[in-house]
Design a protein around this nucleic acid. Structure first.
Length: 277
DNA sequence: ATTGAGACCTGTCGGC
DNA sequence: TGCCGACAGGTCTCAA
């Protein structure tokens, strides 16, 4: 499920339990998620100290004392559950059908990875593998970093014929947006999801006004979502301006449009046909 | 090189 | 109640 804000919320909830803590043991309850676990997965994790837990795009990165990095992607349905050391013994570590990996920490805490759809990913990379990783090394800028600005976005969209919304979902252009916040950012920026990505840049790749609006919209939508998102990112209720609001009135003042839903790249796009051009 | 379609896997929801 | 199709917040691969 998670996009950048939800992954960031997961990171913040896990970091206090993981940072500086030793992994006493790992229970790997199946051979794979989206991809097989790496060889000697359990052995390479056991007795490692977690130096830090960071996030890049929608990936969590746990730096280990061995110098390897544990990479975790939550896919569509991945989540972590924390059983603190003082939790009741009879509930701590209770196993659900979709509990795939259980980390037992030296503190006594249990961190359980649950993922019904198994689109998630867990792997271990050496520093060299991390630097040359075909996906991670090609990720676009973090949308909340200073490097992500209108110039960078326009440059990345220059000459792109794909619809703007699909460009926002391309993690090489900007890293961490998913289907919800791509739609949301386009609404805030008053831009149509269907216009070609190239139209936010001049032919030479300089930012047009649309690129400025879109960059600011992406930053504000994500920042707001992070502030609001807790470890439970389940509720899809009325926090959105267009997402899942098919048929409802556009929230923009004096717009009067009705939110519509259309399929792009096999996924639902929500937008206001009146104010998004 | 870029773009779109289909695949991966399970759960849930609405309609009949 | 049961069955069936549509859909779900993400990537990856393949082929045009």
């Amino acid at each position: 499920m998670p996009e950048l804000p939800e992954v960031e919320a997961v990171r913040r909830s896990l970091a206090p339990f993981l940072a500086g803590t030793r992994i006493a043991d790992v229970d790997v309850r199946r051979p794979d998620l989206r991809a097989p676990f790496p060889r000697r997965f359990r052995a390479r994790l056991t007795d490692q100290i977690v130096i830090s837990l960071t996030r890049r795009a929608k990936y969590l990165l746990a730096e280990l004392s061995s110098n390897e990095t544990l990479i975790v992607h939550l896919g569509m349905s991945g989540s972590f559950r924390i059983d603190a050391p003082n939790d009741a013994v009879d509930t701590a570590g209770a196993v659900d059908r979709h509990d795939h990996v259980v980390f037992r920490l030296s503190s006594g805490a249990l961190i359980t990875f649950n993922d019904p759809r198994r689109f998630g990913l867990m792997t271990l990379l050496t520093p060299a593998q991390l630097a040359r990783h075909p996906v991670l090394s090609r990720l676009g800028p973090e949308p909340l970093s200073p490097e992500f600005d209108a110039a960078a976005l326009a440059r990345a969209c220059r000459g792109r014929k794909m619809p703007l919304k699909l460009a926002l979902l391309d993690q090489r252009i900007v890293a961490g947006l998913g289907n919800i916040y791509a739609s949301e950012a386009l609404q805030v920026a008053r831009l149509s999801p269907f216009r070609r990505a190239s139209t936010i840049a001049t032919p030479s790749g300089a930012p047009r006004d649309a690129a400025h609006r879109l960059t600011e919209a992406i930053k504000s939508v994500l920042t707001t979502a992070i502030d609001r998102t807790s470890a439970k990112y389940r509720s899809r209720s009325s926090r959105f301006r267009v997402y899942d609001r098919d048929g409802e009135k556009c929230l923009r003042r004096n717009c009067g449009g009705v939110i519509r839903r259309r399929t792009q790249g096999g996924r639902s796009t929500f937008y206001c046909p009146v104010c998004q051009r």
